[in-house]
Write a protein that binds this DNA or RNA. Structure first.
Lengths: 226, 226
DNA sequence: TAAATTTGAATTGTTAACAATCCTGTGCCC
DNA sequence: GGGCACAGGATTGTTAACAATTCAAATTTA
């Protein structure tokens, strides 16, 4: 794997998180010198990080025109959900082979956190926790390839939700997460497939595939909040 | 997507092909200045290409220790085949939705080429054609995410086959390819799943998961043949 | 002799200056 | 006013010199 140095990883993770947490919006321009100033690093570092983010599909990088946060198309969104369904299904099947009482407890306690975040109307936290649930499943599946693909898909899904999610969506998917955990323990592949399909279809159904215009805060504004 | 310049893409593709065609063997050291000399380019170019190959999982790149062709572990191989099964299944289902008489003809004519290569005992060409068949399916599926993942998996599979394939394997999988084409046209998902599973299991079954030692030709030797 | 140390070459990593490209606004001409 | 050419600044891309690290062989030491 392409190793980034500690400093590079730091910058990479912070920008990635800023995109995942919806602080950096699709289309936001990412100028090299500006990022240098913000992260107190050199252009070489920023360049490497931007190249990797571009490879991840989170950033659009065109020769001599610089980088900006990616704006996935409707087709990209459709392709992604098909792929996600297939990956999640495989992860769930592997996870079902490996689930233990201890790991089931971890998953359930995670779902409790999701419920708490919803009760607190903390939308930011709900989104983050929802992604983390799937990454927990991925870890449980113990498959490095599937895990990597899912990480990739979840990051890009964040951009897609921002661009295309219907405005009034509640996104309270933790009950579907609970269904998945039940199905994992049921040793019934059909039930598991159904739980996964219901969940992914639910996310896809919350999309309105007409792009909208969103305001874009300046880079300083975004990173000033740490 | 991270754009590489024309010159960079050229180098990238040539190294990738050299790995795919089994000219560059697992573990082969890839020194920057040596590659500069061979491809008549600068260190900057080589560095970018190596970084990307490392990200692809084709090259192992450690800080201050340089790059070498990756040596996937047995666990890597197992993870990869599980992922590949899931991706191929999804691609086949999408391809089945889109198949036309014209595309079926293209697939069949490809299988004819595979048969010809086997008749000619051209093992090199058989391996290349076998990979291309799956990439044709990916293109037919019209899903950019699944296609990308499959491309990724096929490249890495090439390394795994080199390291772990049983020595006497005939690898004449074109009959299984023909089965897949039949299933695509049958509009029977069960039959399609079975054809995919049989094929992927067949490849996995040709592996002997005990690593062997292989001789490694010098870089000059490899690229002198163009 | 075998382990530990030193030393210098080979290799990778970084930086800073330079080059090339693109964008923006201005003035000119029709 | 609208289109066009052009300059200047802003931004990205590249290169070459320098710095840091690793590796291997030679040397020393117990």
């Amino acid at each position: 794997m392409a190793r980034l140095s500690a400093a590079e990883t730091e910058v990479y993770e912070r920008i990635r998180a800023a995109i995942g947490d919806r602080h950096l919006l699709p289309g936001q321009r990412l100028r090299e010198v500006e990022l240098c100033r913000i992260f107190e690093t050199t252009r070489g570092t920023i360049r490497k990080v931007l190249a990797r983010l571009a490879f991840d599909g989170l950033v659009d990088h065109q020769p001599n025109r610089g980088a900006s946060v990616a704006q996935p198309t409707v087709k990209d969104a459709a392709d992604l959900f098909i792929a996600r369904h297939c990956i999640e299904r495989a992860i769930a099947r592997e996870a079902a082979k490996r689930i233990t009482p201890a790991s089931a407890r971890i998953l359930r306690s995670h779902i409790d956190k999701e419920r708490a975040a919803e009760a607190a109307r903390d939308r930011q936290r709900m989104i983050a926790l929802s992604g983390e649930f799937h990454l927990l499943l991925a870890r449980l599946s113990d498959n490095s390839v599937l895990s990597r693909y899912l990480t990739d898909l979840i990051a890009r899904e964040s951009l897609i939700l921002q661009l295309y999610e219907k405005p009034d969506q509640s996104n309270c998917s933790h009950e579907e997460h609970a269904q998945i955990v039940s199905a994992l323990l049921s040793s019934d592949p059909e039930q598991l497939d159904m739980a996964i399909k219901t969940h992914i279809d639910g996310i896809a159904a919350s999309l309105d595939l007409e792009p909208g215009n969103q305001p874009r805060p300046s880079l300083d504004e975004v990173f000033a909040k740490l």
